[in-house]
């Protein structure tokens, strides 16, 4: 009985039970170094959402279920296009075609201790974002020349609040950017983009 009572009490305390919809951030692009030879290469990026439950919850902080209000796979593909452009590639169809396949996208709240001790503003624990992507690069006749799976995490402390959606956004943004940068910085990806022209 104890666990349920705790859940109900904390639920009433935070008045924030149920689903919270939040916009998945568009990964920010910094000023990456130009990739040698990129100016002669044309790459297109399309998104594919292969999560187990597309459109469903990405995490839960005790009593709040976090549900994206926009398209995470589309946001990642958009971020990848922006990063490629910033590195000097021409982003357009007809040459190398990269498919960004989103396979995992989640936020986990690891509490420090029992929610019984929760009060707004109190230290909560660690929030971790997980982003898993597969990028497949195909040449103009659709032959695969590159396939790679990459999973990244980002973490930060969180505090009990009426909404932890901003915390989710922060760690997701960091993980999304790491995934994109990690993939494009991979020499094998760059060679594939060249071979697929």
């Amino acid at each position: 009985m104890k666990g349920a009572v705790i859940a109900l009490a904390a639920c009433a305390l935070l008045t924030a039970c149920g689903s919270i919809r939040f916009a998945v951030p568009y990964p920010s692009v910094g000023t990456p170094a130009r990739t040698p030879g990129a100016a002669n290469e044309i790459v297109n990026v399309v998104a594919k959402d292969d999560r187990t439950d597309p459109g469903g919850a990405v995490g839960r902080n005790g009593w709040q279920t976090l549900v994206p209000s926009n398209d995470p796979a589309g946001a990642l593909a958009g971020g990848m296009r922006a990063e490629l452009a910033a590195r000097g590639y021409t982003v357009a169809p007809g040459h190398a075609q990269a498919t960004l396949d989103l396979v995992s996208f989640a936020v986990d709240f690891l509490p420090n201790d029992l929610p019984l001790q929760a009060s707004p503003g109190a230290p909560g624990g660690t929030v971790i974002a997980t982003v898993g992507i597969i990028v497949i690069v195909r040449d103009p006749v659709a032959r695969p020349v590159f396939a790679h799976y990459l999973q990244v995490h980002a973490a930060k402390p969180y505090y009990f609040n009426t909404s932890n959606a901003p915390d989710a956004r922060t760690v997701l943004s960091e993980a999304m950017q790491s995934a994109i940068t990690g993939m494009i910085a991979d020499p094998a990806f760059q060679q594939a983009a060249r071979r697929a022209q």
Partner: peptide, 20 residues
């Protein structure tokens, strides 16, 4: 615990989970 935690790199904090 939610299966997504299985992908998490951090150890699971004992007090919360063992209580349950």
């Amino acid at each position: 615990i939610p299966g997504r935690l299985l992908d998490a790199p951090l150890p699971i904090h004992s007090s919360f989970y063992e209580t349950y």
